[in-house]
Computed example of a mutant assay.
Amino acid sequence: MDGQPTVHPDASVLDRRGLDQLIETLRARGYCVVGPTVEDSAIVLAELESGAQLPSGWGVTTGPGTYRLRRRDDAAVFGHSAGPQSWKRFLHPPRQQQWSVDRDGAFIAPAPDERPYAFVGVRGCDLAAIAVLRRVLCPDPDSDSTTARRFRQLFIVAAHCTEPGGVCFCASMGTGPAAGPGYDLALTERIDDNGHRFVVEAGTESGAAVLAEVAHRTAATAEVDEARNAVSTAAGRMGRAMPEVDLHALLRDARGADVWEDVASRCLTCGNCTMVCPTCFCTTSEDVTDLTGEHAERWQHWSSCFEPDFSHVHGGNVRTSGESRYRQWMSHKLGTWFDQFGSSGCVGCGRCIDWCPVGIDITEEAARLVQLMPAYRPEDDREQR
């Protein structure tokens, strides 16, 4: 009909109440719904009992070694960049019991956490990180392991990013700001004179089935175009960028570069970068006993390649210096990860920059390597030199 806006058959619109209803619907289906909320002066991930717990009106200011909450001038719930926690903590818990045994020989296997998870507000960088973890932790995705079941049962509500933070560089890593494949539903948040709403796309049949239970309307083509434009525009507003070179080859050739000692002089080898990284997966095990010696347990917990004894073998540690440990971390993350898993281990979320106590910036360190390696400098830069 003349004068009526054209509609987009593959997209819908939820209002703010519709988002709350989406969370209610997922909980009614038996999911443990996890999403962003405000706690301890940060936006963290926690189980949501209702949409009222979302960080309405909160944003963040980020930079090397800097993270601060700030009040927004609107009620956006996804108007913030990555916080200190990633979704990894639910898929690959930081600490979990493997078994326990009593002196009489009674062996007890812990009851696995079988709750299906629904993640709400997953950014493009973190969606890519979940895909990386799936490849690393589930070489056989159809196995009956607790981890494989956890991934199979996962329901993802992604959030296309329209406001990148000061340390974000997902665009240069090809992981954002638009969420790639792997989501069940994807939201683009918009607030303007027409109200607070979310343009929704279904990525799976499961996503479409859940959306059908939530009050929504068909999106107008103009709404979809405006939402997509907001996301594509965000790609040009990243706070950082990784150099446009073959990082795999660069890190291989830069092993002896005159830069590692300098960065090691600033690095505290605290391991913060590996703890906040959404793809670091290394673990170790420890055995503990009670004071009587009657009961023992084995626990698995996250480990870090920055720990002095991480590379311990018979005869001592392989990497004894901070220089060698930082080089190992960066070389694996950006280089040899390709050899093991077929992709980069970095998704451009910027958490390692945010939460480094001394503000070491992985994109700056990569750029320094480019300048030190003549073969990787841009042609015009080489000519000037």
Rank of each mutant, 00 (worst) to 15 (best):
E201G: 01
A202F: 04
A202W: 01
A202P: 10
A202M: 10
G203A: 04
T204A: 04
T204D: 04
E205I: 10
E205F: 03
E205C: 06
S206P: 10
S206T: 12
S206C: 03
S206K: 15
S206Y: 03
S206D: 12
G207D: 07
G207A: 06
G207Y: 02
G207N: 03
A208F: 03
A208V: 12
A209K: 11
A209G: 10
V210S: 07
V210R: 04
V210K: 05
V210T: 15
L211V: 14
L211E: 01
A212N: 14
A212S: 14
A212F: 12
A212C: 13
E213Y: 09
E213K: 13
E213D: 15
E213G: 05
E213P: 06
V214D: 09
A215N: 08
A215G: 14
A215H: 07
A215W: 03
A215V: 10
H216A: 04
H216D: 02
H216G: 02
H216S: 08
R217T: 15
R217V: 13
R217G: 13
T218C: 03
T218G: 03
A219D: 00
A219S: 00
A219P: 01
A219C: 02
A220R: 13
A220D: 08
T221A: 12
T221I: 02
T221H: 02
A222V: 14
A222Q: 09
E223H: 00
E223N: 01
E223V: 11
E223G: 00
E223W: 00
V224D: 02
V224F: 00
D225S: 14
E226C: 06
E226G: 06
E226I: 04
E226H: 09
A227S: 15
A227P: 04
R228Y: 00
R228A: 05
R228V: 05
R228N: 12
R228Q: 15
N229I: 12
N229L: 13
N229E: 13
N229D: 15
A230I: 05
V231M: 02
V231Q: 10
V231P: 03
T233F: 02
T233M: 12
T233W: 03
A234C: 10
A234W: 05
A234I: 07
A234N: 10
A235W: 07
G236K: 09
G236I: 12
G236A: 05
G236F: 07
G236S: 14
G236C: 10
G236H: 10
